[in-house]
Structure formats: C-alpha cells, structure tokens
Design a protein around this nucleic acid. Sequence first.
DNA 1: AAAATAGTGTCTGTAAGACAATATAAC
DNA 2: GTTATATTGTCTTACAGACACTATTTT
Lengths: 246, 246
Amino acid sequence: MTGDTGLKERAGGIDAGAALLPQAAVAVDVAVLSVEDGALQLFVIRREAAPEAGKWALPGGFVEAGESLDQAAVRVLREKSGLEGVYLEQLYTFGDPARDPRTRVITVAYYALVDPIRLRAGGRGANIAWLDVPWEGETGGPVTARGKDGKHVPLAFDHAEIAGMAVKRIRGKLNYTPIGFQLLRPEFTLRQLQQVHEAVLGRKINKDSFRRRMLMSGELEATGRQEIAVDHRPAELYRFVHGHAV
Amino acid sequence: MTGDTGLKERAGGIDAGAALLPQAAVAVDVAVLSVEDGALQLFVIRREAAPEAGKWALPGGFVEAGESLDQAAVRVLREKSGLEGVYLEQLYTFGDPARDPRTRVITVAYYALVDPIRLRAGGRGANIAWLDVPWEGETGGPVTARGKDGKHVPLAFDHAEIAGMAVKRIRGKLNYTPIGFQLLRPEFTLRQLQQVHEAVLGRKINKDSFRRRMLMSGELEATGRQEIAVDHRPAELYRFVHGHAV
DNA sequence: AAAATAGTGTCTGTAAGACAATATAAC
DNA sequence: GTTATATTGTCTTACAGACACTATTTT
C-alpha cells in the first residue's frame, strides 16, 4: 500500500531493508463525545507520567504488531474507558515530528459517540469535561475543556485539536446522516433529539421544521409509549430505524 | 500526542523505551484526481519492483524522520508527479497488518485536485487512468481504473480503495464547498464548471438551478471575456473569488 | 387555574426544477 | 438559415421558518 516504487533504492533492498526504513511509533487516540443537558462532553484521563503529567488526555495507546488501526482503537477504548459496541470512526492522523518529545509518534485519531449514561461508567483516573467550542459552523480549530466547577481542564499534547476536529466532523455529518441517536438512549423524544442536534451544532434550530424533517425522513419509529415523570405534557418516545424503507 | 498514560509500564521506561515500542514504517500515498471530458481521471505510476510489480500505484513514499505528514505528501507529490501548489488534503489512514508483505506499513492517504492540463505534465513511468465509480452518491467502496483504450488498469495494494475514498470525499465536499474550480483552469465557463460537478457527482444536475446557485453564491466573478473558438454562442468566462464578501 | 411543553394547521419566503423565449457564435 | 449553446424570465413545487391554536400533563 505504499505505492513507493523506490523502496528498493532508498532502503537498501526489499528483504533486508525493513529495518532501514524510517520507523515511527503508531498510536491511536479516541475522542469520546457525548451530550448532556445541551452541552458537549468529552471523556478524558489524567496523565500521571511525564510528559504532560497532570494534564488530561484522550484515551490512547500504541498499535500492536498484529492488529489493524480499527482494532487498536476498539481495544484502547475498551481498556481505557470500558466502553464497547459504540459508534467509532477514524477521524484524522496527526504526525508532527515534535508532537511527542520522547520519539517520533504518529497518532491516528478516532472519535466515538456514546450516550451520557454509558459515558459516566468511566474508567480509573477518568473524568468528564465539558467542551467550549470557540468557533461557529465548521470553521474548526481547538476546543477548550472545563470541569463541572467551570474551571479550565488543560488537555495534553494536541488533544484539544483532535477534539475540535471531532466536533467539526460530527457537525458536518449531522446534516446528512442520522448520527444524533448515537448520543441518546435507545428510546428518546423529539425534544431530546433536537437538544442533541443543537448541542452538536452549537446553535438553536427551528422546532417545527426539525420535527417535520425527522418525522418525514422515515428514520424514526414511534414506540407508542410516552416519557414519564416530566412536569408537562409527556412526549411520544421514538426509536431509530436503520434499514428504513426507500 | 499519544494520550497513553501507560507508556512507561508497557515500553520499559520513557527514555530507554522508544526502541521497544511497536514500530512501523509510515508512508503517504496521494490520489491525484482530475476531470476531463466529463470523466474522472487518476494519476498512476507503473510499479517496476516487487511486490505488485506491473500494477499501477498512486504516487507514494515513506515519511522521513524530520518531516510532518503534510510535508511528506507535498514532497512525494513533487518527486513522483512534478506537481506543486495544488489542492492537497489528508484523506484517511490505512493500516491493515497484512497490507504490505515486506513489513508493517501504515499509509496516510492524501488526495489532490488538479486541472487536466497540469495533470498531463506527468512524471516518468506515469500514466493517466479513467475511473469507473461503481456506486452512487456517497456509498463508498473501491473504484476501477481504465486506460485510454478502455482496458482495465490494475491498481496495486489497496489503491483502488484509496481512490474510491477520495471520490467519496470530494462528492461530499462539493455540496458545501467550492472545490470544483480546483479541477479547472483559472478561468472557466459555467458549463465547464457544471461538467466538473457532474463528473465528480456521477450524475446530471439541473442547469438552471446550478447557474443560479453558482452566481448567487458570490464565489464567482465575471471576467468580461468570453470563451473563443467554440462552434456555438460563446459563454462568459468566470474566475473564483476566495475571500468573497459576506 | 397556571405553567410548561407536545403536537397540528396554516401562511409566507426562498430556492430548486421545469420550461419557454431570446441571443449569439460557427458553419 | 441552421445548429448549438448561452442567457434571461416565468411558473410550479418543495421545504424551512414563523406563528397561532389546541392538547395534556404536573403543580
């Protein structure tokens, strides 16, 4: 897959050459996002070791010899957060030569979407940060993270960039793909779905046309049940239909 | 940037550990796309060396020690195709353990957009293939390549997947970003722009609304000149305006 | 009853699709 | 004039935004 016709010349021979090629450590980092109370949440782990000790990092780890990138992302997510079976997709690869002071490290970033209840399960040393997105639309750029107390949560390495790119990506995807339900429990009201969309997009959206659009899309199925224990008229509960009729 | 709090434990110490980390060769491959006569074109290079000798590959090469991924993509593109200053963006990273029989190779794929005249400049061993996209919309999947004679051009490694992902990506981007002009000369007619859009999207689009949409977008600027040497009424030439007024 | 949100119906403005009519080049 | 495409204008349709009204729950 390298497409490099010059491997032999540059590396001293195909069989003997592998060790002579420039080598790097390859890692995966996963930005795990959720939405609660209309705000974007990010799963972070406190770093105990140098470098960047004391800062907060995305769950990450090195790719093992026999595993694919996707497999590494699934494994790392399970090991560091306990999460399994969640929506997970490759995001972008970061490879600045100076991004890790120890050695050359290439990181293949992933993002995961999970509902807030599953996110809270957490792992050791784990915490949940709230994201401030300092740009509109799909401008892109780093985000900042805050704790429950509102205090700034410093992110390690370029993880603020990675999280920002994850937000940018799902803002784009939301316009043409039903990924909102990945951030909700299996059954939800239209209001909850709209709040998820608003939190991701970072802006209010029109209630009437949102309802129409969702109900017309054929991707929602009414369960016949209603939400309970709310101090207002209860709304119908819906469920996402994946292979919906064309 | 690894976000790995477990580096020390797993690799035997920060300073001594670099060599103990799982290492891989990191390459970049660039899918150079263009459009001519309403068809998508791909720049390919014939592989002379094993593996996959005789098949056709994207321009690619290994990332050097001191350079970033973007820098590697720019360098490889220049070395293998002679192209410089073209639209270039990271696409996706492929890391199947078995994708290269020689050693573990991770490839960070890029795509580039270029007008057909610049594409023809080419490099040694280079050729231009026409792409068949066997899926609609943004379904995704590998594409097939054909020569001028219509004969199948076998692509090396997983390069058919990479090219397919490039097509999928630009199909998506075309709906909300003005990248069509990257595939055209600096001045072009609305007809040419529409043909580019149709070639990328793989479907006809409505002429009237396309014209309105483009002219209303504020991204086009009339040059006052017209195309010449056409056997019909000549159309006005336009130019893309980047920082257009809001 | 008051408060709060759910859900329905209707009007308006915008933009796309369809289509007709006119304009201008090569031949 | 014929052919081919450019360019403009109009009509229809689809959908988003806005708003009004009714419905249903808790307090």
